[in-house]
Amino acid sequence: SLEELLKLARHALRHGEEIHVLDRVITDEHEIKRLIEELERLI
């Protein structure tokens, strides 16, 4: 769900981890922040 993805993204950002989204691995902090902003808009 989007909520789950948002939780994962926030966790990854906090802990400096990578996040796997739709067969992509996002490691860049700015990309993760952008993902979080997009998800928050959708929810």
Rank of each mutant, 00 (worst) to 15 (best):
29 E>T: 14
37 E>I: 14
31 E>D: 11
39 L>V: 07
24 R>E: 06
32 I>A: 02
40 E>K: 06
22 L>E: 12
37 E>V: 14
1 S>N: 13
2 L>F: 08
27 T>L: 06
4 E>C: 03
13 L>F: 04
6 L>V: 05
29 E>I: 14
40 E>T: 06
42 L>F: 06
32 I>F: 04
24 R>T: 07
21 V>R: 04
27 T>R: 13
32 I>P: 00
6 L>H: 02
17 E>Y: 12
8 L>V: 06
17 E>M: 14
1 S>K: 15
32 I>K: 08
17 E>F: 12
7 K>H: 08
38 E>M: 15
18 E>V: 13
30 H>L: 12
33 K>G: 07
42 L>R: 12
43 I>Q: 03
26 I>F: 13
2 L>E: 03
9 A>Y: 11
13 L>P: 01
34 R>E: 14
33 K>F: 08
40 E>F: 03
1 S>F: 14
39 L>I: 11
14 R>N: 15
4 E>A: 10
19 I>C: 02
19 I>W: 05
2 L>P: 05
29 E>D: 08
31 E>N: 06
38 E>W: 14
14 R>W: 12
27 T>E: 07
5 L>H: 02
42 L>G: 04
17 E>G: 15
17 E>C: 06
31 E>A: 10
34 R>M: 14
11 H>T: 08
31 E>L: 08
33 K>Q: 11
20 H>W: 06
33 K>Y: 09
27 T>M: 08
43 I>V: 07
5 L>I: 08
16 G>K: 13
40 E>H: 05
23 D>V: 02
1 S>Y: 14
20 H>E: 08
43 I>A: 03
22 L>Q: 13
39 L>R: 00
16 G>H: 13
23 D>Y: 00
35 L>F: 12
40 E>V: 08
32 I>L: 12
12 A>L: 04
38 E>Y: 15
13 L>N: 04
37 E>D: 13
4 E>S: 08
12 A>F: 02
34 R>C: 05
32 I>H: 01
42 L>Y: 07
38 E>F: 14
41 R>A: 10
32 I>Y: 02
25 V>G: 03
5 L>A: 05
10 R>L: 12
20 H>F: 08
24 R>N: 07
38 E>Q: 15
42 L>M: 12
18 E>L: 07
17 E>H: 14
12 A>T: 00
9 A>I: 12
29 E>Y: 14
12 A>S: 03
24 R>W: 08
1 S>R: 11
43 I>R: 02
11 H>N: 11
2 L>M: 09
10 R>E: 15
36 I>W: 01
9 A>H: 01
41 R>K: 12
8 L>E: 11
20 H>I: 14
35 L>V: 06
24 R>Y: 08
25 V>M: 08
4 E>D: 12
39 L>Q: 00
20 H>N: 09
9 A>D: 00
35 L>G: 00
9 A>Q: 01
41 R>H: 09
40 E>R: 05
28 D>V: 07
31 E>K: 06
30 H>T: 12
15 H>R: 07
25 V>T: 10
16 G>Y: 05
39 L>K: 00
22 L>S: 12
35 L>W: 12
5 L>R: 05
29 E>G: 10
16 G>D: 04
3 E>G: 05
14 R>M: 15
22 L>G: 15
19 I>L: 15
34 R>F: 09
18 E>W: 05
36 I>Q: 00
43 I>S: 02
32 I>V: 06
31 E>R: 05
14 R>C: 05
39 L>F: 04
31 E>M: 09
24 R>H: 08
23 D>P: 03
35 L>Q: 01
40 E>A: 04
23 D>H: 05
34 R>P: 01
20 H>C: 02
27 T>S: 14
30 H>G: 14
18 E>R: 08
3 E>R: 06
14 R>E: 15
12 A>Q: 04
13 L>S: 07
19 I>H: 02
13 L>Q: 08
29 E>C: 03
18 E>D: 09
22 L>A: 14
32 I>D: 00
18 E>M: 10
16 G>Q: 08
21 V>H: 09
4 E>V: 10
4 E>H: 10
34 R>W: 11
6 L>Q: 01
2 L>K: 04
15 H>S: 13
11 H>M: 04
32 I>W: 02
10 R>M: 11
38 E>V: 15
19 I>V: 13
36 I>K: 01
7 K>R: 13
2 L>W: 12
26 I>E: 01
18 E>C: 08
2 L>R: 05
21 V>P: 01
14 R>F: 14
34 R>K: 15
31 E>W: 05
23 D>G: 15
2 L>V: 06
40 E>G: 03
38 E>G: 07
11 H>Y: 05
16 G>C: 04
22 L>W: 10
21 V>D: 03
10 R>Q: 12
34 R>G: 10
23 D>L: 03
24 R>D: 05
20 H>V: 13
10 R>I: 15
22 L>F: 12
8 L>H: 09
17 E>Q: 12
24 R>A: 07
13 L>H: 06
10 R>Y: 14
29 E>L: 13
36 I>A: 01
25 V>Y: 08
34 R>I: 13
35 L>N: 00
43 I>W: 03
4 E>Q: 11
26 I>R: 01
38 E>R: 13
6 L>Y: 02
8 L>P: 00
40 E>M: 06
30 H>N: 15
12 A>K: 04
40 E>Y: 04
27 T>A: 11
9 A>K: 00
33 K>W: 08
35 L>P: 00
13 L>M: 07
6 L>F: 01
10 R>S: 07
30 H>Q: 13
6 L>T: 01
28 D>C: 05
21 V>N: 04
3 E>I: 10
39 L>A: 02
43 I>P: 01
13 L>K: 05
35 L>H: 04
39 L>M: 04
21 V>A: 09
17 E>W: 07
33 K>M: 13
33 K>T: 09
22 L>M: 13
20 H>P: 04
25 V>D: 05
22 L>I: 09
19 I>E: 00
42 L>N: 05
8 L>W: 05
39 L>W: 06
1 S>Q: 11
22 L>T: 07
23 D>N: 08
41 R>D: 06
31 E>S: 09
34 R>L: 15
4 E>P: 03
10 R>W: 10
39 L>H: 00
16 G>I: 04
7 K>A: 12
43 I>N: 02
31 E>P: 02
12 A>C: 03
24 R>Q: 09
7 K>S: 09
14 R>L: 15
23 D>I: 02
30 H>R: 13
34 R>D: 11
20 H>A: 08
27 T>Y: 09
5 L>Q: 05
38 E>D: 12
43 I>C: 02
2 L>T: 04
42 L>V: 07
12 A>G: 06
12 A>W: 02
40 E>C: 03
21 V>Y: 15
36 I>R: 00
37 E>A: 14
1 S>C: 08
30 H>D: 13
29 E>H: 13
7 K>V: 09
15 H>L: 08
23 D>R: 02
1 S>E: 14
10 R>N: 13
33 K>C: 04
4 E>R: 10
33 K>H: 09
25 V>H: 08
23 D>W: 01
14 R>A: 15
27 T>D: 07
25 V>R: 04
43 I>F: 06
33 K>V: 13
2 L>G: 01
25 V>S: 07
18 E>S: 15
12 A>R: 03
14 R>V: 15
7 K>C: 05
26 I>M: 08
41 R>F: 09
15 H>C: 05
7 K>Y: 06
42 L>C: 03
24 R>I: 09
33 K>S: 09
43 I>E: 01
17 E>V: 13
23 D>Q: 06
37 E>C: 02
30 H>P: 07
26 I>D: 01
39 L>E: 00
42 L>P: 00
1 S>P: 09
14 R>T: 15
14 R>I: 15
15 H>Y: 15
3 E>V: 08
36 I>G: 00
42 L>W: 06
11 H>I: 09
17 E>T: 13
1 S>V: 14
25 V>K: 07
23 D>M: 03
39 L>G: 00
31 E>Q: 10
42 L>S: 06
34 R>Q: 15
29 E>A: 14
43 I>Y: 05
41 R>P: 01
18 E>N: 10
2 L>A: 05
1 S>W: 12
41 R>E: 07
18 E>I: 11
13 L>W: 03
21 V>M: 11
38 E>S: 11
27 T>C: 04
34 R>N: 12
13 L>T: 03
38 E>T: 15
12 A>E: 02
34 R>Y: 09
33 K>A: 10
18 E>H: 12
7 K>G: 09
16 G>P: 03
37 E>F: 13
28 D>G: 15
12 A>I: 03
10 R>P: 00
41 R>S: 08
2 L>I: 10
17 E>S: 12
35 L>M: 08
6 L>C: 02
25 V>E: 04
11 H>R: 09
22 L>R: 14
28 D>T: 13
3 E>S: 05
42 L>A: 10
9 A>T: 03
7 K>F: 08
26 I>P: 02
30 H>A: 14
30 H>V: 13
21 V>W: 14
30 H>E: 14
17 E>D: 08
39 L>Y: 04
11 H>S: 08
26 I>S: 02
4 E>F: 09
6 L>G: 00
